[in-house]
Design a protein around this nucleic acid. Structure first.
Length: 358
DNA sequence: GACTCGTGGAA
DNA sequence: TTTCCAAGAGT
């Protein structure tokens, strides 16, 4: 595009945005910390899902200091159900860095932002443009989809190399005039008009600039390589109760899937079968004397990259937990612990089927 | 570079 | 019902 075309592109884009852009909670503030929280929550997560989490989060942790000082369990509990929980731990770690090294003020240089835990290329640019009015293009999925159609770019957007190509392109388009609105406008167009499987070209402010629309090939863009199929894992979920009706729960490791969450003990059925002596296996692993187990309920939960098939087994214990990562907790006290969604379903089942917890 | 990391909504 | 995929970052 020449300079005049770029001016027209920006005018059409920003003009549309100012009358049609979405009104969102994090757009009503200029507090960099609030914008930061919203950008992290919005990673791979849709706006409507984020809104209630965002409102709760900034109410509970209204300042960087409040978040820095909070127990990790409280942060995870506030994030419970939103997914990608390492985002929450990295956000808290990043905020702690900001409190300690930058006096609680979010830095305004790209290099420094990128050094902060949980802030990558997208979030750094989003913060610079939206909180500090810097002309940095924030390359996300929306922006790549819209621009791939406008400019007929057929590189695979699943490749990291392609992101840099869009960064170069968007850098040539963005101007000093409200760069935050430039990024948000492209995101809004991507979310409202130029959707993955439907493009409402007649109502698109970029229509006169769009090569894909001109050729009617908008739905063939962007090009994206496919995902692998989720891998199935079969688990036994152990409902181990003591004489007071409390259930044994354990804390997951602090790395990997659902890190730091609490759950009912789970055993891979493969290992369980292989162990042969089922009761001894459970006794050794959980320090609990088990009554004979029997299947009570099965449940399937699909993650993006794997599938849990859960079979509930019933047991009793007269012992106390043998590890700090295990606790006996009354049903009424489950609220204090962050549980993964599939185990929240287990809790629901318990509440519906166990009126008497003795 | 290729994997891992969640969940819910839309078609 | 199945499939895709959404304001990505860390390893």
């Amino acid at each position: 595009m020449n300079e005049q075309q770029i001016r027209n592109f920006n005018h059409d884009l920003l003009d549309w945005f100012h009358s049609n852009g979405r009104h969102l909670p994090w757009r009503e503030t200029d507090n960099p910390y609030y914008i930061w929280v919203s950008e992290v929550m919005l990673q791979q997560t849709q706006v409507n899902t984020v809104i209630p989490y965002y409102m709760r989060f900034i109410r509970k942790f209204p300042t960087p200091a409040a978040l820095a000082d909070a127990p990790e369990q409280d942060v995870l509990k506030c994030w419970e159900g939103l997914g990608y929980y390492s985002r929450a731990r990295h956000l808290q770690q990043g905020v702690r860095e900001v409190v300690e090294k930058y006096d609680g003020q979010l830095p305004d240089s790209k290099e420094t932002l990128l050094s902060i835990s949980g802030i990558g290329p997208y979030t750094a640019s989003a913060l610079l443009s939206m909180a500090y009015d810097e002309p940095e293009p924030a390359i996300d999925g929306n922006l790549m989809r819209v621009l791939s159609r406008v400019f007929l770019i057929d590189d695979d957007i699943a490749k990291q190399k392609t992101r840099r190509k869009f960064e170069d392109l968007a850098s040539s388009l963005i101007t000093e005039t409200d760069p935050g609105a430039f990024n948000q406008a492209l995101m809004d167009i991507g979310a409202m008009i130029c959707k993955p499987k439907h493009a409402d070209c007649p109502n698109c402010p970029l229509r006169r600039h769009c090569l894909a629309s001109e050729e009617g090939v908008q739905l063939e863009y962007p090009v994206k390589s496919g995902n692998a199929k989720p891998r199935p894992l079969h688990y036994a979920v152990l409902l181990i109760r003591d004489d007071d009706g409390r259930y044994l729960i354990e804390k997951r490791p602090d790395k990997g899937l659902l890190a730091g969450f609490w759950q009912f003990p789970m055993i891979l059925l493969d290992e369980y079968e292989k162990a042969g002596q089922r009761h001894d296996y459970i006794s050794e692993r959980y320090g609990c004397e088990m009554a004979p187990v029997h299947t009570t309920f099965t449940y399937t939960h699909r993650f993006s990259h794997l599938i849990w098939h859960l079979t509930l087994l019933d047991g009793r214990t007269h012992q106390k937990p043998i590890s700090e990562k295990q606790r006996l907790v009354a049903v009424a006290d489950f609220d204090a612990y962050p549980f993964p969604v599939p185990h929240q379903k287990v809790i629901e089942w318990i509440k519906n089927n166990r009126q008497n917890h003795t």
